[in-house]
Design a protein around this nucleic acid. Structure first.
Lengths: 339, 339
DNA sequence: TCATAAAATGTAACCGCTTTCATGTATATT
DNA sequence: AATATACATGAAAGCGGTTACATTTTATGA
């Protein structure tokens, strides 16, 4: 069933049918009625592909995240789909697997698929190729919104958490608890949030006149395994840290595993605060203090920003910083006062 | 840059360019060369929308899951995107939010978006409307593959886990540990996996001649809260159960929370086995025995089945049952022998 | 009543590609 | 050399809509 069949049955031209289904106001009420009746009787749904070809744009947006299985991203993705649905947009998803090539591969399909806009969390902060692709996309009038991670030298709309503040508050809190030997397990340096969290740590230490010791700053990635090893390394130091701040949820778990395996009690033998809440631990009431942010809000905001840009193409690119919250559940404490 | 500009620059007709980019073999090697050079020089990428309109089908598949934040679904989704990517398919994602209306809303857009196929995990096993929509889709030549959940009276390809066996083995194991007072926290009855897990429980009990007590069979949903309350209810019985089998990961957590809050030690004061592994607990080495299955494999298999149907439209609809594995980590044990 | 403006509708080109059918050209066959 | 055959290419219709422009209908005012 296509538009000309409907036109024929309703005894009008295809142009009129098109006007009716697009809510144009230059069609007589009775005609509209008649056409609508035929449309409903035949359960006619216009072909979105043909429409897209004609208007040279779609109602589809693209989302490229590095790892949909990471609760942060699945939460953000949920927010995006929710907001998209409410505004009658469809969403294409692509998982870059933390792989720059794959990410770029997908970015190249943006034009041929005539996407209305894209939301991306770039794999590599330093990739010039990715930046150039994104700039090309913007230049051709397709809005880009970055989520959580940005890209060096690029000028894009972005929604991010207040990473530095989150880290600053977490570390400050540990200091208030009396700690001086505070370790940080950083993520891989390829992304901005990692950098900012690290800066928050250093600023908190500086502001409280606590010297930063290189051996307490170790680097993990996005997985738990390396953080596990790094924790072992930290705890094997002649003077092991008395508190640790972990920069993302998977690393928090890796760290936690080493500590519990060794029988080191969290919030008792050692203090700990992680970045990002871990639902499973929260649900079982495992007392872990964390820096929390709303993933789904970040997704919704990203979609909203995209819609704004779509509505007003020449609008300014904006940066939205989502607040973080330090949620204290006890793991920031220390019972044995061996600080 | 479109096909006719390329044709002009290469000094051939659009038909020839079309043949070149579609790898038709009836074009002279030299011509192909020449066209390809122009294509590359101009970084020409054919417009997928126009192509779709012309061939009346896309390389897009649709995925409808009830809750992308649930690790089972985000894992399965990862598998789908992985397999799709390898076969040059794009994936549209839609979150039904466990809401039948939303699910049906999306199913209606399948035609207008000319999707090549869909993978769905239906919200409600008993929804005739959903079944009819899916049948209509199949009838119009668009393959449907169900994942994890099926639909009453429908004859569709499906990939599912061996739910009954998983439950049977888990409960049998609890029985072997000496239990007789075994409770089950079932999910909401709207889906088939729930029914099968429940049946596995009953069969295990029957096979070992243990009478099933109604007060030990309680119903949760997909969330942790109700399971928490149900666990309290179970533990408040005059004769509380000595072991509990929970039918999905969120309920496992809710149950776990009540027990730990009450100071009831898992694998010591009470035995427990859950359905589906919980990564966070595994990573921190929390000793929870579970029935495990590979979510991403299920997604990959679903995509593979879709591709097969796409290649051979008249192919039989098949049911693939993915094996489950009982992973014993200690929580199935009981130390206080008060059984 | 008629000229004129405004509103409603229709005609047809176009979006960018695929593909059938017609045509032209090279190769093989006798 | 003439004819048949296979191969290579092009012209043009079509996919299902939208929309600029032309045309017809209706409303308005003198």
């Amino acid at each position: 069933m296509n538009i000309s069949e409907i036109a024929q049955k309703a005894g009008v031209s295809v142009a009129t049918v098109s006007r009716v289904i697009n809510h144009s106001n230059l069609v007589k009420p009775e005609t509209r009625e008649r056409v609508m009746r035929v449309v409903e009787e035949n359960e006619y749904v216009p072909n979105a592909i043909a429409r897209s070809l004609s208007v040279r744009s779609t109602s589809n947006i693209g989302v490229i995240f590095p790892d949909i299985e990471n609760p942060f991203f699945s939460g953000a993705f949920y927010g995006v789909t929710k907001a998209a649905e409410q505004n009658h947009y469809n969403v294409f998803f692509f998982n870059s697997d933390e792989n720059v090539q794959k990410e770029q591969e997908f970015l190249k399909t943006v034009f041929s698929n005539n996407l209305a806009g894209i939301i991306v969390s770039p794999v590599d902060h330093y990739s010039d190729t990715t930046r150039e692709l994104l700039e090309e996309i913007e230049k051709r009038g397709i809005p880009v919104v970055l989520l959580d991670r940005d890209i060096r030298g690029g000028k894009f709309s972005i929604v991010m958490a207040d990473n530095e503040k989150g880290a600053y508050e977490a570390v400050s809190r540990l200091i208030q608890e009396g700690h001086e030997r505070i370790a940080i397990i950083e993520g891989s340096t390829l992304t901005r949030p990692v950098y900012e969290r690290s800066r928050g740590y250093r600023r908190a230490m500086d502001d409280h006149d606590i010297p930063i010791r290189g051996e307490y700053m170790v680097r993990g990635d996005q997985k738990s395994e390396l953080a596990y090893q790094m924790t072992r390394q930290l705890m094997s130091l002649p003077e092991p840290p008395t508190a640790v701040f972990t920069c993302n949820n998977m690393m928090t778990l890796g760290c936690l595993r080493y500590l519990t395996e060794q029988g080191i009690m969290i919030g008792k033998d050692i203090s700990m605060i992680g970045f990002d809440d871990i639902e499973a631990l929260r649900v079982i009431d495992f007392k872990l203090s964390v820096v929390e942010r709303s993933e789904s809000d970040m997704g919704k905001i990203a979609m909203r920003m995209l819609l704004d840009r779509l509505a007003v193409p020449e609008a300014e690119r904006e940066t939205v910083v989502v607040p973080v919250k330090l949620v204290l559940r006890g793991s920031e404490k220390l019972q044995k006062k061996n600080v």
